[in-house]
Design a binder for these strands. Structure first.
Length: 556
RNA sequence: GCCCCCAUCGUCUAGAGGCCUAGGACACCUCCCUUUCAAGGAGGAGAUCAGGGGUUCGAAUCCCCUUGGGGGUACCA
């Protein structure tokens, strides 16, 4: 069922199905007439192409052709850590693959030697793994259509650039970066749209030979048609047309022999048999170039799914590190749970219905629908992410699971040594975690929240022991009686202990709170802690007595 | 500048012409619970559906314009 969960009953609302894809046929009446790529239904009703640019409400069977294997890829460039926006794109792409039992491919787009960063691939793959997004083909896994690093596929691109040149769909350009720069500067000065002036588009064979003789290595540029329009079909937005005369003769192959994104993405998506091109919205404007390139090769253009960008919390610009944590690994380091990040990310730009908000990865595989993705950009909201994290910690994770995740943080803080599951140390940590988990929003807070269960309380001022409207001597007497009680009491019997302490408070002319607070301070060194009796039980008799003695000493 | 995309509470969203007196969540406020802090429970405030024109008996929903926001405009991806 998966994607069809929202499908209308048979025979109902067939026009809804028609929305996706219709209108594609009449597109692109140029020399580069689009290839007939019709996963869209070939309904004759072309008067109603995409009546709306909103997502089709009925999941169309046409998104995936009968018998078609879904193969999608996440293709980051190794220029830094995995970004939150990239992570969401990866998530949506992965979900699409998984729910259709297709292939999720990881491809490294390392065609920019200048920006390449050695550690990036490791950083990105570990972030994906942390999120639970596994890949079927790619780094560390190999696969039938590799290599999965574009830098290892150079001959492929060069060969394809040659094919384009020979077919008259591309040409060699010998312009120097300096000339390009001055052309651009002049255009801007004259308030003209900046862009390549096609200086080399019609060079003769002799002219090209002369340039080569000068030792200039050309780039290869796409020979974009000068007239007509090119229509891009985006699953979330429907078709949009671009006037060819406004398109650029984009560079496809750089002078260093590396392809640009425009060439590499088309060549690889085709050779890797990618069924749906899923990527960030920032690629939408260059999609017509890609459509043209597919056409030039005579290849079928797959459907595009451009996922909306995530904006900074203030709505100004794409989410950036300047506005806070944009790198996924920072969340791991910050004490976030991958489940919470995934859940939050799934909900920015997508929703299941008007109330469900908790989704595991498994739920998402079942319920996600790419066509319900909202094409409008959404702002990032740290508070809501934090809320999810807190909620998963306090209400979703099993105690053992939570403890397992907290243990490393306690160890890093030097509070805990080896604590394998089943050990006494683990059990103690679990008891502490059980008490404080409702206060913990981040795993990174665990050590501070629990430290007095493992080590001596922080130093505190004696007057913290004396609540308002009570006096030191009364507190002192009560604490002494408390000490005697605790020395004998069964700390496991919390209710009974509480009753006894309440009685004790009354006997000393104190309200319960006026006794409980000094005890709390004595045990923890703080005025904020979990419930007193749970705290007492986990601190243990021996330590409790020591700490009460210390408090009594402070009171003189 | 030019091209493209987008537009429902502060934010993320539900909404596919009458089920809308516009629903949910985060954040915010009040109250309850209570040994502190949380967590939890019950309420509240918050959106003339960006504005203006159409279409229609009827529009948040379809069309157009305006405005606003975002993206792109490299031998970067």
């Amino acid at each position: 069922m998966g994607a069809y969960w929202r499908a209308a009953p048979a025979g109902v609302r067939t026009s809804g199905e028609r929305r996706a894809g219709a209108g594609f046929r009449e597109a692109g009446a140029s020399a580069y007439t689009l290839p007939t790529c019709l996963w869209g239904p070939t309904a004759p009703d072309s008067r109603q192409p995409f009546a709306s640019n909103r997502k089709p409400a009925t999941v169309t069977t046409s998104l995936i052709r009968p018998g078609q294997r879904v193969r999608v890829r996440f293709a980051p460039s190794p220029t830094g850590d995995l970004h939150v926006g990239g992570a969401r794109s990866a998530l949506f792409t992965w979900l699409f693959a998984r729910q259709h039992e297709g292939d999720f491919i990881l491809r490294i787009e390392d065609t920019d030697q200048k920006r390449y960063k050695e550690e990036s691939v490791e950083s990105i793959t570990s972030a994906l793994s942390w999120l639970g997004l596994d890949w079927d083909e790619g780094p560390g896994r190999g696969g039938p259509v590799g290599p999965y690093y574009q830098s290892e596929r150079l001959p492929l691109y060069q060969e394809h650039a040659r094919i384009l040149v020979e077919g008259g769909h591309a040409y060699e350009c010998f312009c120097s970066p300096e000339r390009l720069e001055s052309v651009r500067a002049a255009q801007i000065a004259n308030r003209q749209p900046p862009g390549y002036d096609r200086f080399c588009r019609n060079l003769s064979a002799a002219e090209r030979a002369a340039k080569r003789a000068e030792g200039i290595t050309p780039v290869v540029r796409l020979k974009a048609p000068l007239e007509g329009t090119t229509t891009v079909y985006d699953v979330l937005r429907g078709p949009s047309s671009y006037e060819n005369r406004l398109l650029e003769d984009a560079v496809l192959l750089k002078s260093d022999g590396f392809p640009t994104y425009h060439l590499a993405v088309v060549v690889d998506d085709h050779h890797m048999r990618i069924s749906h091109v899923m990527r960030g919205e920032e690629w939408l404007p260059s999609a017509p170039l890609h459509v043209l390139t597919y056409a030039a090769f005579g290849w079928e253009t797959p459907p595009f799914i451009h996922m909306p960008v995530i904006l900074n919390p203030d709505g100004k610009g794409k989410l950036s590190k300047r506005a806070g944590a944009a790198s996924v690994l920072l969340y791991k380091q910050g004490g976030y749970l991958p489940e919470a990040l995934v859940n939050y990310l799934a909900l920015v730009g997508w929703s299941y219905d008007d109330r469900t908000e908790l989704f595991s990865l498994a739920d998402l595989i079942e319920k996600f629908s790419i066509e319900r993705v909202n094409p409008s950009p959404a702002r990032y909201n740290y508070e809501k992410l934090l809320w999810f994290n807190q909620y998963y910690i306090n209400h979703v994770l099993e105690l053992d699971d939570l403890t397992r995740r907290v243990v490393p943080w306690l160890q890093d803080a030097g509070l805990l040594g080896d604590a394998p599951e089943g050990s006494e140390a683990f059990a103690h940590a679990r008891a502490a975690v059980a008490l404080i988990k409702d206060k913990m929003k981040l795993l990174s807070e665990a050590a501070d929240l629990t430290r007095y269960f493992f080590t001596d309380p922080d130093p505190y001022e004696a007057d913290l022991l004396v609540p308002k409207k009570s006096d030191p001597s009364a507190v002192r007497a009560a604490l002494q009686a408390t000490r005697a009680l605790i020395a004998e009491a069964d700390l496991e019997a919390e209710a009974e202990l509480e009753a006894q302490l309440r009685g004790l408070a009354e006997a000393h002319g104190l309200k319960a709170g006026q006794l409980f607070m000094p005890i709390r301070v004595a045990l923890t060194g703080r005025t904020v802690s979990p419930g007193l009796f749970g705290t007492l039980r986990v601190v243990g008799r021996e330590r409790a007595l020591e700490r009460l003695d210390a408090a009594l000493a402070k009171l003189g």
